[in-house]
Design a protein around this nucleic acid. Structure first.
Lengths: 195, 195
DNA sequence: CGGAATAAGGAATCCGGATTCCGTATAGAA
DNA sequence: TTCTATACGGAATCCGGATTCCTTATTCCG
């Protein structure tokens, strides 16, 4: 029946180290993908392996934490594009501007982040049951599609799932340097147009 | 200066075992992808690990050997489709029949072969310098494209590289169960049409 | 049939990393 | 300043698998 006294606040240095780890890992993963070693991350962060493990009990946990962040960034970007799309008049030569912009943005991001390109497939795939961020992303994508469709820029039958697939493929193209990813985006966008 | 006497022919049992290994590995990889253990392959083949390693000095060698086979199969299939395409009149409702058939065929194959879907990206990507089979595949694809283009079924600017990318993406879609791959093929084919 | 020359088997070894453990160091509450 | 909950560091440990090695079994050539 002991009354638990209020916990001391988290040590400031602990917090600082967490940030350092996160940042170092983000950079390393972006540069070389997820096959970087935990010890490397720790070194890059200027922290001991023990500390790294205190923050993230597992390599997987670390990767997941970062992937989550980056995915959330994508949601934000998509949100912005959707809003911009809402404002703009229908005078642009690209009637699907929001969606178009989004796909190119994703390409840009993946092209600059090896790690992300390795995981986005899983994130978007039907794998993870818990996908708060995933749901959010699908929602915004659906919105982008609706806007484009309202202007007759994409087929009536296009769904967020379709874009999902396209992104999944895009990541693979980028990872394998299988060609010019911009061309890929161009082709798939054409494929989504009506008729 | 010793004259090497003519070698004894390869023992029949040795050959038999090689086939067994190849077959077992093919099945296992198709079923579960390439993360299967060497010992599992050996067991499935009814052979000792030592024997397995005598045939394929490295896990990578084994995977490569099988991937090579399967890729060659794709070339054969493509070749057939190209020939069939050559015969057919232009009365079909699908003017790109050869190419269309090929992409669906690839999808079918990848959907039934986890291992292949994991590697095709690398095979098609600009990775491998030595790509006899890769070259052959690209050549047939180019032919399929030419035929389709002659009928105005695909854009003037479509290249084998484009199809390459599409396949790379297709593999990712299938691997991640990111959606209905047939839909993906449909969309990308549309994207390759003129205009 | 007899004897190399090959091949089969599979236990023992090796290895690259991830993860754990515990003795120290430090922040921050009193 | 003191004291203790927290956090740090990084050597030691653990582990899953690939790969090696050596002993025994088979082929098949003469």
């Amino acid at each position: 029946m002991s009354t638990p006294q209020r916990r001391r606040r988290t040590r400031t240095d602990a917090e600082r180290n967490r940030d350092r780890v996160l940042e170092a890992a983000r950079a390393l993963f972006a540069e070389s993908g997820h096959d970087v070693q935990m010890s490397e991350v720790a070194r890059a962060a200027g922290v001991g392996i023990g500390t790294l493990y205190r923050k993230f009990p597992t390599r997987e946990a670390l990767i997941e934490a970062i992937a989550e962040h980056r995915a959330a960034d994508l949601v934000v970007a998509a949100r912005r594009l959707a809003d911009a799309d809402a404002d703009s008049d229908a005078d642009s030569d690209d009637q699907a501007q929001g969606l178009t912009g989004f796909l190119y943005h994703v390409g840009e991001v993946l092209a600059g982040d090896r790690g992300m390109s390795e995981v986005i497939g899983t994130v978007m795939g039907s794998a993870e049951p818990r996908g708060e961020t995933r749901e959010a992303l699908l929602a915004v994508i659906a919105e982008l599609i609706d806007r484009a469709r309202a202007r007759g820029a994409v087929g009536q039958d296009v769904t967020a799932g379709d874009v999902n697939m396209v992104i999944c493929g895009l990541a693979a193209v980028i990872r394998n340097a299988a060609g010019d990813w911009r061309r890929y985006v161009e082709v798939t966008l054409d494929g989504l147009r009506p008729r």
